[in-house]
């Protein structure tokens, strides 16, 4: 006994030619209008696009595809190279900033007007140039290693602070903005005690 459901399940196979109707199934199709309508639908659906010549040229599709994939791979490689270079540049910038900060006594996170310029403000704070530097201020200096430096080395270090790379002018250093030789001498004397 052929049921409509059994026939329905076999329709795609018959439509694609991988199977054929049995005599019983053909009899059922001849008598069941619902199954006939479904069969016509499935048969028409199986032919959908059969007359379509697409793609017009499969060889061209694969040629274009391979070219496109090659371009994509090249773009990906270039993008990877760019980001690697950008990463290295960023790392170099960070290293440079840390190194510069270590040389000048600034921590990388310090900003203009922040605590970093203490090294400069402490000893040159006195309004009168001949006034002695207060011991309390000297104690605040964060770089005790400067105590052992000769005057020439300190002088060159202070000059380095004025160089653009160090951007010392970005900090608030009013007292060191344009120190005279005598002032520097006093500063150094103060640093050396």
């Amino acid at each position: 006994m052929t049921t409509c459901t059994q026939l329905s399940d076999r329709m795609p196979d018959v439509a694609h030619g991988t199977s054929r109707w049995t005599e019983t199934e053909e009899r059922h199709l001849a008598t069941c209008a619902d199954c006939r309508a479904e069969w016509e639908l499935v048969a028409a659906a199986s032919r959908l696009g059969a007359g379509l010549r697409s793609p017009a040229d499969p060889a061209l599709v694969s040629t274009l595809l391979l070219e496109r994939l090659a371009r994509e791979r090249q773009r990906t490689r270039l993008r990877a190279r760019f980001w690697t270079a950008a990463g290295l540049a960023a790392a170099a910038a960070v290293i440079l900033a840390v190194w510069t900060g270590a040389r000048t006594g600034h921590r990388p996170g310090d900003v203009a007007g922040g605590p970093a310029p203490r090294v400069a403000t402490a000893p040159v704070a006195p309004a009168r140039p001949d006034a002695p530097v207060a011991p309390a201020l000297r104690a605040e200096l964060p770089l005790p290693e400067l105590d052992d430096l000769p005057a020439e080395a300190l002088d060159s270090m202070l000059q380095a602070l004025d160089e653009p790379a160090a951007r010392a002018d970005a900090y608030e250093l009013p007292a060191l903005a344009d120190p005279g030789d005598r002032e520097l001498e006093r500063v150094l004397t103060g640093l050396e005690g």
Binding site: A45, L48, G49, A50, L52, S54, P55, A56, P58, A59, V61, S62, L64, L65, R68
Partner: peptide, 27 residues
């Protein structure tokens, strides 16, 4: 591509793609 381009094109066409768009969609 040779094996599957045709059936993919037919499937896209049957799904509603216009015949002028099928080649680009297959690609």
């Amino acid at each position: 591509v040779g094996r599957h381009a045709g059936p993919v094109g037919r499937f896209l066409y049957a799904s509603g793609a216009s015949s002028s768009d099928v080649d680009d969609l297959v690609q």
